[in-house]
Design a binder for these strands. Structure first.
Lengths: 222, 222, 222, 222
DNA sequence: AATGAATGAGAGTTCATTCAT
DNA sequence: TATGAATGAACTCTCATTCAT
């Protein structure tokens, strides 16, 4: 009780107090959505709290009722998007009957998410300086899960033996780059089917799976 | 797709004026070097003309004698670094007796460049918003050259038949990601040998080449 | 000169309304205590209503149920502390058998209060701009009472004849400065004994009294 | 040369570079004068950089060319005023033929300075929170010099033997309080002569000098 | 070829206060 | 009696850029 008085004011949610009534929850979500758009379109630095609050339809001061500051929303946004891609990919790849199918489903889920949330890619690129901590966290989280899945597949004999860590980072890179090139740059809703096929052929080879590529191209896939 | 870019930043308005005496050339280079450090360490937005000129040891006004503005130096820096990696990689990979060896030499050259010029990677990440034009230009330039080399190797039967474009983008991504992870994040001078080997093993598989070469060089380790 | 001040902050507009139930009284006191700490540690301007309410454990809105605003609590706090030092000093000095003893007891009481309520000194310093009205009120109140006591002592022949007003302001200044220097700056619980003795020696001389009393108490030291 | 790049920009004179041309010197002085008025009239917190620059007739940005920030000008102002009172007092009291005369001249000089630079007193009061460091520095500087002079006078037998440190702090307090009460509060150009005489009588007694007060009151001085 | 000086728009952030509940 | 939510004006500070010299 006699601890020093902090110089900063009401710590904008850094204290656990007040569980946020329904009205607050809604406003907060509106701000987070606005942040996704603004950060996604403008990048970290050209984004401004003013633009976010304007888009959310609240006063500037309101922003600080819910977030500690610009960087804080940014990090929350990264965390949120990161969690959601990971979830989407893991749900999708979980449907695959073997690793190769799982890869295709996972890549597709990732591409779909990229098309729907261009902010993910953009926010990650900006995180290099805006929040290195979150950048690492994001990549490592994905890579770790990916490597684990590869290890299991390898143990089941579905793919060649290879270092799962390097393979995971490499394949993660591939997905990101193809998404950037054929979705974001082309402002497309999805990677063109033939590019997807070729990408998956690359993945198959890299995993040491003699995928019969002809079948993939012509079969009734989805 | 790879349209030429004028390299001289020099204010577009004062086009051909005064070919720059020896003193001017030196000042200009000092500014460009300072820009590499400042943009590399601070990112586009936290970099400031003031910091660049301070590091270069000239007055702020001097900056505008040589460059059209902040964005102009940035673009010139991207162009410069991009040209230099490409050159380093093409020289290195030109020494390879087959495609696989060329790949290893090329990757090594790229990693070396990354360690010596962290600004390249960082500047590219920032270019997403700071200068999308240069971002595209950089990646496309590399990918185009890469694809060409793969096409030739494929024709010579050194690698499996596969779409060279997708393969080029994918491998470019791999190099960038591994460099980020094991050089920049670890602040290392080079990718650890075993990671390099595993990376090359990945590349070999992806190119449909039986991955024996690592063994040739380093005995039976990994 | 010592015009009366209404003590109750309670928004001037809602004048006599609701005499404040027992719960309200408690909340109000909690807020006032919190205000003492916050104003005392942070100063008028760095203090914020948010910090006061946080420390008091109530919502921000609650604050305005009991006080008209930030300035209003501040003034109430000044009035409260001012009344309390005056009371402490007058009780203490009332025990003295002559003026000199009364002075020593009064100074001691003042120093004790300063150590226990550093906020008094700090709040007074801030009042220069935060509430000049209260600043004058505080000093004049003390000086008036002090002068009165000096006048009486002079009439009784206990001290030399001298202008009581100037003497009162001068001695008040001395007490404040010594307290600042040896209690607040040193974060001490009391003025060191030898400093107290020397201070009282100064006071004795200033009052034209042969300064023997220190010796009576502590032998031949200061 | 490879030391970390500071995140802050041109360090607003924290670097020693550029000795400030004549134009710059003038602007800087205009800003400092404006700061004296603004801080003096409004106090630290209600003063704003905007008000200072407006009064100085320059753009807001210009302020930061010459000062590190609001607190930095404040401290420079304290240092400046502090140096100047000390100088004025020491010059004045140096003219005295004995300590008592020196005291009178010193007090007069101090009161004159207070009347001409009300900002001194006000800025010092604000320094309690705005810059405790400068507050201590100011008081200690004066007290130290004062004590030294008292020690010398005591050695010469001009005043009674008494602890010079406590005496110095006490007399400093007296001057400040009398100045506050009879110059600043009354918005007067000088302490009324009879108050000055009574103050000096107090000082004389406190210093153990049997001043023939009658003479001072009636003699032909001022 | 180089520079010192100035600018002003705009950034992130704080906070006393209001009000419906 | 108490509160959560919202506000918007004001603040300090940064920076790319211009320009006369």
């Amino acid at each position: 009780m006699t601890r020093q008085l902090s110089t900063r004011g009401r710590d904008a949610r850094s204290n656990v107090s007040s569980p946020l009534g329904p009205k607050g929850v809604k406003t907060r979500q509106r701000l987070l959505n606005a942040a996704e758009r603004v950060f996604g379109e403008l990048g970290y630095h050209d984004a401004s709290v003013a633009k976010i609050t304007e888009l959310a339809g609240v006063a500037q001061g309101t922003f600080y009722v819910y977030f500690g500051g610009k960087q804080a929303v940014f990090e929350e946004l990264v965390a949120d998007l990161s969690r959601r891609v990971r979830h989407a990919m893991s749900v999708a790849s979980g449907q695959g009957r073997d690793r190769l199918e799982a890869e295709r489903l996972g890549f597709q889920a990732f591409f779909r998410f990229t098309a729907e949330h261009p902010a993910l890619y953009r926010v990650i690129r900006q995180a290099e300086f805006a929040s290195p901590r979150m950048l690492h966290w994001h990549y490592e989280h994905i890579a770790d899960g990916y490597a684990e899945a590869l290890r299991a597949a390898s143990a089941r004999g579905e793919i060649a033996e290879a270092d799962p860590e390097v393979t995971a980072w490499a394949l993660m890179a591939v997905g990101e780059m193809i998404g950037m090139r054929w979705i974001l740059w082309d402002e497309a809703k999805a990677v063109p089917p033939e590019i997807l096929d070729r990408t998956m052929a690359f993945v198959a080879r890299a995993l040491g799976v003699a995928a019969a590529p002809a079948r993939e191209r012509e079969g009734p896939n989805g």
